[in-house]
Nucleic acid binder design. Sequence first.
DNA 1: AGCGATTATTTCGCAAGCGAAACGTCTTTT
DNA 2: AAAAGACGTTTCGCTTGCGAAATAATCGCT
Lengths: 116, 116
Amino acid sequence: MQDKASLQSALRMWEEALGELVRRDGPDLSARQMAIMLIVYLQEPPHTVRGLAAQLKISKPAVVRALDTLGRMDLLKRKPDEQDKRSVNVVRTVKGSVYLSEFSDVVNEAAKRHLA
Amino acid sequence: MQDKASLQSALRMWEEALGELVRRDGPDLSARQMAIMLIVYLQEPPHTVRGLAAQLKISKPAVVRALDTLGRMDLLKRKPDEQDKRSVNVVRTVKGSVYLSEFSDVVNEAAKRHLA
DNA sequence: AGCGATTATTTCGCAAGCGAAACGTCTTTT
DNA sequence: AAAAGACGTTTCGCTTGCGAAATAATCGCT
């Protein structure tokens, strides 16, 4: 268990960043969609539907739907696997990189503001 | 603009915490619902529908719906304002406090794990 | 070559959330 | 006291997401 101060600290930081995101115009990603974005952009490729479903413990159709939505937004892309033609690799896009970059700015600003 | 290391740092922390939350059983709150929870539990009362809508720049019906859902989950409660009978105060519950306490544990664990 | 396993997707019925507009209640202004 | 405004809620039509089950394509094993 943490001390009370650090509990509040983490929550306040989350609040500021999240509030900023909700206020923002533009795409409002669900928790699952954001989790998939972060995995795809922060963990080493390759990323597959089954892999994402397993890591997040959600159903494969849920992953497929999230990829549909994120793909429509150009935040990531499907790329057929040439070795195993049943499989699909999920890859990054420029727009997705920009999106996450701005996102991390928001988080960092909140962190900085809170620590100050 | 931050240096690249700290950008990645914030994102990785967010990813670990968010991943844990998505995996978790139990209520899966939307971004808006979570934002409302954090405001109600971290900022000083009183909290009203119009106040929450203004702060998050979302419509009042959206706030009403979120309060319906969160209220059904016992994560917060409506309390009629005695002074101005048009108004409603949003107040905390024990269950909500527990929920956020566990939430901050997850965030803190992710932060600690990442800094290690 | 054939057959079961694996991968991703689609279909189905359903539940939840959205914004805009209308509404009911209460307060403030005139 | 009547009108105007403020607050929260409800209604409307619509969009999105969900899990479970069914489907299509491909792989691997024997």
